[in-house]
Design a protein around this nucleic acid. Structure first.
Lengths: 231, 231
DNA sequence: CGAAACCTTGAGAGCTCTCAATGTGAGTGG
DNA sequence: CCACTCACATTGAGAGCTCTCAAGGTTTCG
């Protein structure tokens, strides 16, 4: 909620929904563990980083740009499980394979770590293991909040809640550019793109936000926005 | 998915949805850490164990019975975030306060641990920290699966998926007694009790399950059940 | 400037919810 | 052991929210 994430390129950065404080712990993690040096790698916009079912040999840390992770059903229905920002770690699994797919939201630079190496560091250094635990617990808390949203909130509440969360992550100024498409938003909130679009239009009509030239830029009237979420 | 949980009283036990393998790691956790001795405590059916917003001073381990955790909105809408079975740990938080409420599903016996004590053990023993990390990661994986269910699956798919999961957790025989009410099921799946009821009736009409005398007992025809979930 | 992807808007359908009534089982006291 | 009670579960009818299908507008990019 109050996490501060440095955003080298605010207009391009994405919110990190599944790892709210991941950036913080992520930064500390490797600082305290100099033997863990990641290999730099770059991905183009929309490029797949790993796919569901693949061996979970590596773990990733966002350096620049943004990444999304999602799960899909056989008929194509998609649920985004998280957006990951600079500083965030993603790709950890308990089992042998990835349980979701990761793709670059924008052109992105990451550091790649060998999972075994990190696990080894964790088994030898309680400090590292505690940070990983802390990170996972934070991600879990966020996932539970999102379950409440998906299971019990209306379209208006979901979209308003989403916009406020993106705003917070992008500096909390109330004015920002959404780093993802309507489809990404819809697949994160369990809605359709049409419903997301209509809801944003309605929020604007209610005076809860303003849109400028491009559809990605919004200015939130946060008091009215909060009223739309109510709780 | 293949976790085996010992069920002293199958007809009373509940599925553990948010901590699929928690029981396993939970058992190991304190076995390897004899200085951590929990204080036994008992709760009556429907009794609150802790409430959202309270200080997260303690951590709990189910010994007997079952526990559910949930979040609520101000208007009463509720989302169950997990059912916890014997062996499962619950109540961990990253911050100072509990982010959800825990209640006994049936009469339950638990062991209570001081959170600080466990955290201290974790900072001194990488093994303990790794187990806690592992547990959190497993819970996170389950939460992400549940997000897909809540965001993208139909009522039929949700109920069928839920029933199969309960079956697995209760031994996988295909025949069992649901340990929770329709309301609990509905609040876990993001549906209403009426929709849950209608969906079960429909699954029975489709030959995917049989109900005996009491509404809580079901026998799954797992092949047809799987077809209802399709994926 | 043209093409393609993205976004918005409209109309109607469908799934789930709401409201209401009935049925059922477990527990209690006579 | 039975009647009573209350919580729980089922069923029905209609409403409402979101989806689907379709068309048109807008932005981006080559």
């Amino acid at each position: 909620m109050s996490s501060v994430i440095s955003l080298p390129q605010p207009s391009q950065a994405a919110a990190s929904f599944n790892a709210p404080v991941g950036g913080i712990h992520g930064s500390g993690l490797f600082a305290s563990c100099p033997e863990l040096i990641g290999t730099p790698f770059a991905y183009a916009r929309e490029e797949e980083i790993y796919g569901e079912g693949e061996d979970a040999e590596f773990v990733y840390k966002v350096v620049e740009g943004a990444v999304r992770t999602h799960k899909v059903l056989s008929d194509g229905r998609r649920q985004i499980t998280g957006f990951h920002l600079p500083g965030d770690l993603f790709g950890f699994e308990q089992g042998e394979t990835h349980r979701h797919t990761a793709e670059a939201l924008s052109d992105a630079k990451v550091l790649i770590f060998k999972r075994r190496q990190i696990e080894r560091a964790a088994t030898h250094r309680a400090e590292v293991a505690c940070q990983l635990w802390s990170m996972a617990t934070n991600n879990l808390r966020h996932a539970q909040d999102h379950m409440l949203l998906l299971g019990r909130r209306s379209a208006t509440e979901r979209v308003a809640s989403f916009l406020m969360e993106v705003d917070e992550r992008l500096g909390g100024t109330g004015t920002f550019a959404l780093p993802m498409t309507r489809r990404d938003i819809a697949d994160c909130l369990g809605l359709t793109i049409e419903t997301v679009s209509r809801t944003i239009t309605q929020l604007e009509a209610d005076g809860a936000l303003l849109r400028s030239s491009t559809s990605r830029h919004v200015s939130l009237r946060r008091n009215r926005m909060r009223r739309a979420v109510e709780d």
